[in-house]
Design a protein around this nucleic acid. Sequence first.
DNA 1: TCTGGGGTCCTAGGACCC
DNA 2: TCTGGGGTCCTAGGACCC
Length: 423
Amino acid sequence: MNERIIALIDCNSFYCSCERLFRPDLMNRPVGVLSNNDGCFVSRTNELKRLGVAMGAPYFQVKNICDKNNVAVFSANFSLYTNMSDRVMNTLFEFAPSIEIYSVDEAFLDLTGLDEGSIESYCRNIKKTVEQNTGIPVCVGIARTKVLAKLANRIAKKDESTKGVFSTLKKENLEHALSKSEIGDVWGIGRQSNIKFKILGIKTAKQLRDYQNSYLIQKQFTKVGRMIQDELREISCFPISDEVPKKKEIMSSRTFGSPVFEKSSLRESLASYAGLACEKLRKQNSVCQEVEIYIRTNPFKEIPQYVKSISITLESATCDTRKIIKEAFTLLDEIFVSGYEYKKAAIKLSKIQDKDEYQISLFGKNDSQEDLILMNLMDKINARDGDETLKVAACGTNKKAWFMKQTLKSPRYVTGWSELLKI
DNA sequence: TCTGGGGTCCTAGGACCC
DNA sequence: TCTGGGGTCCTAGGACCC
């Protein structure tokens, strides 16, 4: 018998809630936060969802609805969100010996061993404390496995009678949750699998749990599908892990504010993204041995299209921004074709290894102490004085066309001295 | 005019080895 | 006429997540 108890704490409309924190006047107004470049909605409050604005909806397509209904729309302000996320997580650490931060706005807590009779009130207290300490509203799902905790959390969010906490530890609650949840609502089952399940006649989570032919499930939905089925049966397959794994690849990409034609603009953007990616690489104390770049035109526009990526394996692994930029430029020379209207560029670092353990190259030029000291210094200054205070000159200096548009951005309430809230 | 960014895991199939 | 068998490693592509 599985005695594990897992709680999933998930912030409500996280980005929107962060914006509301500093704007109490927005408490009952619909609020939405846009992706980079003010492209699509990536966070919506319930009021906005009720207006029919879908997740990922392009802003320009629903702008009318927003204007008519007095919707407060924001550009994404990621430094604010990560800062608030840290505060939420720090509060959660007080409540469990083991916690897995799953994403910016959710965490699994291992509550195994706590008295089952009082687990719900314990979680209500977590909810209350997080809201008191940070101002961010959260919901809690309690279950024996992660997949079920996800389902429970969904119900806690949707069903107001739960007051934000729902547990499937009791049998009748579990049956209720499973029969009420559509198969596509189950964590790990996306669009493609949804279609395949429907063909098998499986429409609810309950039907998947009770489906006898597990061999067929594994055959059609891989090992992962089989594990999801087991988790619905309260058999634990996905452990909680409190160690933060190092990234195996690091990507940095942006859609441009305006399209660009010149190779020089692509070079600047790639240099800039390389800077961001390498900073992340150094932060986790790694080096990389493969660089890939990617450029493309705007697929939504009826113009001649061009999409191309190319990668190179380096002779020696590195975390030096300048070397990565050099490689990126060489790669760009190979795939750039003039005449196209470019809309996006990306860089990806892979074959990532530990800085202290990687194989030194016999032939390539390895990072020297001086290189590392310089990079380290640059990171320190940028951490203190703001991103890209110090950067490689190849990134360009003036605000150019490829810079992203963020016309609706809120102030840096918690990360910039000059933008603190004035009362 | 206007459509995001960053990840992970799994499998099949090819290359290669003895 | 008749052309082995088994294993590992790597990669591309698909699916999914927030």
